[in-house]
Amino acid sequence: MNLGEQLKSLREQHNMSREKLAQKMIVSRQTVFKWEKNKAYPTLDNLVKMSELYQITLDELVKGERTFPKS
Rank of each mutant, 00 (worst) to 15 (best):
M50V: 01
G64P: 04
L47Q: 13
N15Q: 15
M16N: 08
D45K: 14
N38F: 02
K34S: 12
K20T: 15
K24G: 00
K8R: 15
K34Q: 13
K20N: 14
K20G: 01
A40Y: 06
V27E: 04
E19T: 15
Q55K: 15
V62Y: 05
P69G: 05
L61F: 02
N46E: 13
D45I: 11
V62E: 04
P69Y: 07
E36P: 07
R29C: 09
R18I: 07
L21Q: 11
D59H: 04
R18V: 02
N46K: 13
K49V: 02
D45E: 15
L3S: 02
S28R: 10
K49D: 12
E60R: 13
T67A: 08
S51N: 10
M50D: 05
N46V: 00
K37I: 03
L61E: 03
P42E: 09
A22I: 04
S71F: 14
L7I: 14
K24S: 11
N15R: 13
D59S: 13
S71A: 12
G4V: 02
Y41A: 12
M1F: 12
E60H: 12
L58H: 04
L53I: 09
F68S: 09
E36T: 06
K49Y: 11
N2S: 09
K8P: 02
S28A: 10
I56P: 05
L3Y: 01
H14Q: 14
E36Y: 00
E60G: 06
K63T: 06
L47I: 14
V62C: 11
S17W: 08
